[in-house]
Amino acid sequence: MSRHPQTGPLLLVNASHPLPISKTPDLVCADPRWPEVQLDRQAAGQLRACIRAVKGENAIVPVSGWRSLDQQQAIWDDTIRQEGEAFTRQYVALPGCSEHQTGLAIDLGLAAETIDFIRPNFPYSGVCGAFRKLAACYGFILRYPAGKESITGIAHEPWHFRYVGTPHARFMTDQCLVLEEYVELLRRKHSKQPLLVPAGSRIYRIRSCRELFREDLDAALAGRCQISSDNCGGYIVTDWR
């Protein structure tokens, strides 16, 4: 058995599970026109591909991507001053507990002369609706849907998308699961018997574990599987061997 770094696209980050690492992820611009909005490299590539697929290059604007701890603290403090504590706790994650600090989360807005940084307009119709329908195919989920507030601890945010990877995004979207529920499902039911998820030409075998076998680490190094910490004391192994 062995341990693995606390990283990966399935990190659960919320008020009960603070970000476990301080290392800055491998970041690139989500869109060269907005160089200040950065994402994890793989997430950024998939986001651009999804926006191109719906011909949304001139309509969909990346509003907020990776944030440092200091930036998240400043947003928290500013929103508290301007909107009050109740509003802030609904729409802004606690510093150290924000998905934006992973580089895997992106807030999107419909292009307009003025865009609200905290609550950008990203409707369910038009090009934004088309993006929603394809998002899972490119590895993104709507992280804070309506009806799941008691689980996520965050109000419905139609603009906030999280990269988790294609097989996971497809399964979560099909089953109407948020990341908290998905991690718990894997831990409860798929530690011994993997979850099988078809995506494209592959069938992915997904399992949860507390410790990793040497064969898992070797397969990950060889590019035959992916290991992600779940930030709940275990790992999620996604195997396509």
Results as ranks from 00 to 15, higher is better:
E215V: 13
D26T: 08
S228E: 08
L196H: 14
A130S: 08
E83I: 02
G65D: 12
E85S: 09
L134G: 05
R132Q: 12
Q73N: 13
L10R: 13
R207S: 02
T114F: 06
P32W: 05
L10K: 02
F213N: 09
Y124R: 06
R202D: 01
Y138I: 11
R210P: 00
R143S: 02
A43Q: 03
V37P: 08
D40W: 07
R143A: 07
T24K: 15
L104T: 10
G129T: 08
A49H: 01
C29G: 09
G8I: 10
R214I: 14
H100G: 09
Y144R: 02
W76F: 15
L110V: 03
D239A: 01
G45C: 14
I60D: 03
S98H: 09
I21L: 13
Q46C: 08
L186H: 04
A222G: 00
C97W: 14
D218Y: 14
D77K: 11
R143N: 06
S208H: 13
A53S: 15
L47F: 12
E181P: 12
L177C: 15
L19S: 02
A30S: 12
H160G: 05
H190L: 14
F117G: 01
S191K: 15
L185A: 13
A93P: 11
L110C: 04
A222I: 03
F87E: 10
K23P: 11
G139M: 02
A53T: 08
P120A: 01
I206D: 10
T152I: 08
R187S: 14
L94Q: 14
R202V: 06
